[in-house]
Write a protein that binds this DNA or RNA. Structure first.
Lengths: 232, 232
DNA sequence: CGACGATTTGAATAGGATCAATGGGAGTGG
DNA sequence: CCACTCCCATTGATCCTATTCAAATCGTCG
């Protein structure tokens, strides 16, 4: 690993509090690897061999059953994924694939578990990370069970706007097919949902979405910190 | 707290590895309290004041938005709930209410966080517990996004049968209204889903459900360990 | 017995999925 | 540079699932 990558990692909350010795050992065991777009990193059901950290790019987590597939979440820069499976020494409940070009840090599961046993600060950092993941899924499940498709899209757009600095125009970070799956609908349905949002001041131009009246859209989306707040 | 209750708690994986001193302090700070059925323990959005452990009975976790409500999960004997909120010192993302009569252990959030800081074994036990919760929600989200209502019901019945010792007759642990919400449908729809399952050998008699042909139902439910396995 | 809540059933509607067909770039090869 | 192709996105039509509203039935608890 290049020194700059190592020092970047050291900043991550997961590793920040670790003892130097443990961090040293962990980063020696780790591989930093570049992946082209649309590569399958592993499939659901595989034994958890590695913990992943996204150094650059975005990874899609997905799941399937009986021939159907759905997107479960996206992980981007500085995010970790599949930590729970590694800790419990179990199989992955989701598959993972790269969205665009990616650089990923892969840490062998055994080494993570060893560090977890030895380093108390690391163990505590994992708690905080996992608690955050857990709360993230809970929010997404509330989104899914309590809102209709159109409402989910509206809320998604406003969250995206907040993330991108409240510009009047936001850019979808991945293609609509993926977005649809993430929001729990078909691509056709997403198109129609966009059309439904037109009277609320939403104009689509490829991946770029103009939101003319955030108030108006907000009345439909009814953002709640208990569903839409990032982090926490 | 009665000594028998304390010793029972000590067995829970969350507390099993704790140092005696820490456990002592934690159990001194805790309240064991009995609640009648259908009591609201706290509401979503409340600040996390207590960690709860179910000593006896069942608690429903629910969420609401814009006048709609849904059931997010059930916690029964020896389960903990709301651990993530306590650790992150945040607000509850879900509300909680008792289903039947309950005895609950309430541990002040501050004391849990103090024990978390001081006791390394406790911190590690929390990791394992949280990882389990996380994987539980992921499974439930897969169930929700990948299966139709009827399929979810079929899978639920088979999981219940496994839990209750593969008897030909299973008993629903709570009323159908709650079950419907848990499965992400309306009570009316649950009734119809039961009717749809009749040709698959499912006979309803109040809360008691007879499953005459588990094979047949299984072909519809297509249980997968990646969605339906308990624990892990 | 009567009242109430839970459950079931029926009818109408809405929301979402599927199937089919068309338009629109991005990339490829000539 | 242009034609071609492929894949994504959109649109239309239709179907199916699930929700809503309404009403009837069932059981249980006073």
């Amino acid at each position: 690993m290049r020194p700059e990558d190592v020092s970047g990692l050291r900043e991550l909350s997961l590793f920040a509090g670790m003892a130097d010795e443990g961090f040293e050992r962990l980063s020696r065991a780790a591989y930093l690897q570049a992946f082209p777009p649309h590569v399958e990193l592993f499939r659901e059901g595989d034994r958890a061999d590695f913990l992943f950290v996204v150094v650059e790019g975005t990874v899609e987590l997905h799941a399937s059953w009986n021939g159907r597939e759905t997107s479960m979440g996206m992980v981007s820069r500085n995010g970790t994924f599949i930590l729970a499976a590694v800790i419990r020494d179990a199989c992955y409940l989701m598959g993972a694939r790269t969205v665009g070009r990616c650089r990923l840090l892969m840490i062998p599961a055994e080494d993570v578990r060893a560090a977890f046993e030895l380093d108390d600060a690391f163990a505590r950092a994992i708690v905080v990370d996992l608690a955050g993941c857990y709360r993230g899924v809970i929010k997404s499940q509330k989104d899914l069970k309590l809102r209709t498709g159109v409402e989910r899209l509206a809320a998604y757009l406003l969250r995206l706007a907040a993330e991108q600095g409240e510009e009047p125009e936001v850019t979808l970070p991945y293609d609509k097919r993926t977005l649809a799956s993430l929001l729990g609908m078909t691509p056709e349905n997403l198109s129609r949902a966009f059309a439904t949002l037109k009277p609320y001041g939403v104009a689509v131009n490829g991946a770029s979405i103009a939101i003319s009246d955030r108030e108006d859209l907000g009345r439909l989306a009814k953002l709640s910190p208990l569903i839409d707040a990032p982090g926490v």
